[in-house]
Amino acid sequence: MGGAPDRAGRGTLVHLKDESLRRLHASEKAVERSFHEARLTASLAVGLLLVGFLLVAQMRGTATFSQSLERQSDQNLAIIIQQTAAENNALRNEVVRLQVRLLEAGQATEDRTQLLNEAARELNSVSVVAGLEAAAGPGVTVVLSDPERVLLPQDFVRIVHELRAGGAEALAVNGVRVSATSGFSGGDGRIVLEGSEFSRRFEVDALGEPGNLAQALELPGGLKSTLATFPGVEVEIVKKDQLRVPAAKRIGFVHGTPVEDGQ
């Protein structure tokens, strides 16, 4: 092995080593620079992000504030006050108008209530007269005993008639209501009213002014004296302060139809 080539070889080696060291150094620097660049960009980016966010928040806050009253000019404020006052007036008028309407409506309701009450009262009395409802009040009880079974249905028709003439408002025979459509039938001492059969002893309840009712039967030559002439028949009239008459069976209206006035 010669010295010269040896030296030359070593020179190449040194050169290569320097070269690789230089490259390593350069790449290290490059890494460092890119790292530095990344940090730079990141911090700037965060700063800009904050700026954007704050800008929007600030703009929104300013927009809200400029609409608030304290930022308005005097002229604007005067206009606003005028408008508000006008609105106020209009609303006050509206309140008065509505109050008047409320009063009127209240009046109308009162009128209607009164009308309804009257109608209800009328319906009540009509119901009592028609026998649709039980009724109570002063009246008389006519007690008839007929041991010989001589009374006829027409005798009861007469009794009912006389009592009605005396002002009876509601009638019942042995607890059966005599209504507008009731009729007496039967024979041979049996009296049939609304499907119920009675004989021998009868109690006729009549609501009305007790004195008038009693008088209607006790007139001289009246029904009481006539009935008393029948064999075995006894008639007793008892005035009562409180009497109760039951409701009639429901009336079925089948063949007729109500006709209005003028038709």
């Binding site: 980016a45 800009l48 954007g52 928040a57 806050g61």
Partner: peptide, 16 residues
């Protein structure tokens, strides 16, 4: 980043 900040501000509806 700036655009993202603006978007965030718009989305979160913050008002000062």
């Amino acid at each position: 980043a700036l655009a993202l900040g603006v978007t965030l501000g718009l989305l979160t509806n913050v008002s000062v």
